[in-house]
Design a binder for these strands. Structure first.
Lengths: 198, 198, 198, 198
DNA sequence: TATGAATGAGAGTTCATTCAT
DNA sequence: AATGAATGAACTCTCATTCAT
């Protein structure tokens, strides 16, 4: 793994942001973390904003989430459900990554239109993928409601990650997962049956 | 409503933060918005941090959410469900407030332990209240799973608010509400039946 | 003479510029010379450029030159000539002021359009005034050639000031003044006679 | 003309200075203009100052002005006068060169003693040459006053070039030239007659 | 010779905080 | 109570200069 140039700076910037937030990320701090001089930063990036932009770009690109679940080959229902479940469990674990995502979302909400646009693209992609998986798993026809279910599913995961990051610890993870398990195995099946009959 | 002293400053600070974020909130800006001098600020608050603290404190206090739904008197199922539904719709509308909440969450995640603790208390309170409403509405016994459902419900709302703030516009609000409607009227009923039988 | 606020800063800036040039004029240097902190500068001026602008504006305003010679009342030929002569002698003396003027001209030539415009206005004013004085002194009709003579006269003075600032010391000031004396007393008379006869 | 090494750098530096001024001349910019790397510059020059010095040195060397007028062979009055006139017209045209000269003068005035010394030599040379031409053309004896007239003539040209660079446009070039024509053909003749009779 | 990444001092600017009035 | 001028540390960014390659 070559840690040269931009990579070194982006990695340092990501570390600093994770530790001190975007407000606390200074060029000097990033340079120090990267082990280079402040001036060196400007060989690779024309401004601090450009650095943050790349950090965000990288950060969002790495938000694979359910996108790693292949929908190419036909899989058994149990396999698909297990993969979704595992994918969500993984998100609950990745603290640093989730932290960065909330920073980015915060920035986007604050008015960074470019970032907002990227988030829009990402969410569309995630929701589309999740819908395809649902279609495969539950043998249903895609439509506005399947998309809405996907959106709610992602929303639930995001909200749960927020509670985890905030360390609310109100509910035990075991019970949290039981609900998730029910939803994937029976809840959605039940829902799509009812929808199908209408 | 007397707009003197601290109140005036906190209101100004909240406005500034909503518009420019915490990074963009300067003492000068807050003073200007409040219509006082920078020096005057320091008669009421010893530091900028103290102001932000109060803004956060107020902000969290005002996060009423489902807490406005009374559980004192016995209500019909339909009435309770409608009240929950309306309460969530309301959250989807309150842009400025949601924005501030995300700023606060962001700050808490960043390492503000006191704020984190307040969030913990808040979520516990919300989840407890939601659980009581569920117990009333679905005629079930409270337990870890009812709490988990409440936690997931809040998580879903938070995540959906995030998508709204990010203006992802992936799914139409009508369909979003259809899912919510199903969950409250049939989904949870179905779930608690299954849980009850186990 | 109240040396408060802007005045103090402008005076300091003028001093620094005279000593170190515009390149050598730093905010820190100006602040030190003015006896205030760097931050204080920004109470009065929003940028370094704004300071330089005011220095230039002041500098150009103070370039009274022949504009102090009143043309209101009728004066004897000898009086007028003597006043012009004295006015020019004065310019030869004012080292610091002339120095600043050349800095400003240099900046204008470099591409500062606003400054260029100011110079244009100033030169127009000076030339017009000098023409009026010539008309009074030599009893002639104003016209393009009288304006041209005025322009050449100013040009000569500017060029001579340049030689003085460069300390070329090629010619003794006494002889320089003898030529000036001839021009004012006989040269121009002779010229306007010839022009008049054409 | 070999454009290697120092020449290439000096040419680039002169171009940059003409376009952006001395303040705007950076090593990077010069290197780019010269088509070499920043490091390569330091093979030829030990510092930026050294480059600027050579630019100035070259710039002053190229200030030929009236020095191109040969005084070797006897010429007719009309020929000499025409040559002086043409030489001055040429100066009015050479914008870039004049621009550079003012930068140099500016630097010298700012305190560059070496440059000041060079200017002194140059002006002495120009004035001496002009005096010789005057002596030839007007059949007079050289003396302090002939030198003073030469100094004033140069001063006038310098001042007029300044007005041209500043784009004051107060007076039409045609009328400017009419005055010059009068001076060379009749003015100086008249002056030297009067001086001679005293 | 030649490159260009790297250095680091210093530039303009911001802003929480203080304090004489 | 209230003002706002003043402070100064810390920020982003620039650029002459160096040096391993």
């Amino acid at each position: 793994m070559c840690n040269t140039g931009k990579t070194k700076i982006i990695d340092a910037a990501r570390t600093i942001i994770s530790e001190h937030g975007i407000q606390g990320a200074t060029i000097r701090g990033i340079a120090e973390e990267a082990g280079v001089s402040t001036g060196a930063i400007y060989h690779y990036y024309s401004s601090k904003e450009a650095i943050l932009y790349d950090v965000m770009d990288d950060g969002l690109s790495e938000m694979k989430r359910i996108s790693t679940i292949s929908t190419e080959q036909k899989k058994k229902f149990e396999t698909l459900i297990q993969e979704i479940f595992d994918s969500m469990q993984e998100r609950f674990q990745k603290d640093a990554e989730s932290r960065l995502q909330f920073y980015l979302a915060h920035e986007a909400i604050l008015g960074n239109e470019e970032l907002k646009h990227k988030f829009k693209d990402k969410y569309k992609d995630w929701i589309d993928r999740l819908e395809i998986i649902f279609v495969q798993a539950y043998h249903i026809e895609p439509g506005p409601l399947t998309k809405a279910v996907a959106a709610w599913t992602l929303a639930g995961i995001d909200g749960m990650v927020l509670q985890i990051l905030l360390e609310t610890n109100t509910v035990n993870l075991t019970h949290i997962n039981q609900i998730l398990d029910y939803l994937l195995n029976e809840g959605f099946t039940h829902f799509f049956q009812i929808i199908g009959n209408e």
